[in-house]
Amino acid sequence: MKVLDCIDAGTEYCPCHLAEKGECIMCSQLQGKSFCDCVNWKGVCIYQEYIWNQSHNKESRKTYTCEVLNKEQIAASIYIFKIKVNRTLTRELNQPGAYVFLRSPNDPLYFDMPMSIMKVDKEEETINIVVQERGVKTKSLLEAKNGNDKEVLLRGPFWNGVLGVKYIKGFRKGKALLLVRGIGQAPALLVANKILQGGSSVEVILDRGKAGVDFTKNRFEKMGCHVINKKIIDEENLTVSDWVIQYVRNSITNKGTELIYSGGPEILHYGIGELIKQMGSDVYFTCSNNMKLCCGEGICGSCQTRLIDGKRVKTCKTQFDPIAIYGGR
């Protein structure tokens, strides 16, 4: 795929700071060039939006103070947060790839951590997020006491948590295979939900992974997915297990699977990406965005990576075919 899309193009947050500084991901006019070269049109002329906005970026995402309605510990280091948000946010976050930044109210801005949305309840106006205790930021959030544990600071909505999301949104009446492991179970639910809405069937290979807990099997099955519990990663060799490789190969070749979602560690993305490339298959490959998302606005540079062709991309905002990273060099 040659097309790089910006997940925020055409939204109320577009044009953003990047446009104002001549670094827009989409628009040649806002990359300092003098003429249109609009390969990745999204239905809105970003340059026109920019000029109409007095040649300034639109207002960025807000940070909301949100009530934590419930915090349930489901394994040694795994917690499910139920957070009260507003109606607009529930609507905006109810899609595959949606995430927010969270931090405890008494922590400084740089404690913001990206958290995938597992579930949205539009009636209750709540979201569910699964937090795994890992480093300084998660520990600080989980250790908050004396009333500070009753609230979180939430910045959002953000949407680039899944790469190749347009394949998921556009998938109709086909067969999809989801490979999910550990904490990667959480965002996979919204992925499955979207695929099912398109009239497709969903098979899930589920590995509790280092999270040590399976918290989604029932949810997947309730939605109508077929779930197989199986180890996905061979932890001794740190590779995708032979069984999974064979299963994926067979699904593509003999079972008519047309979309694969990899929701797990980088090893899984590379294993599946290289397999698909090797097979020369045109199956849609999608995966969780595992990059180090820090500001979410394309500014800080921490999420920047290089595609196979050498092009640099800001992965917090850019959508591209994951094969361009994981298809092997």
Binding site: C27, S28, Q29, S34, F35, C36, C38, C45, Y47, Q48, I51
Partner: peptide
Amino acid sequence: PMGNCLRYGNGC
């Protein structure tokens, strides 16, 4: 397209 009509004209 639109961006050119805007930059060099009176907009779309």
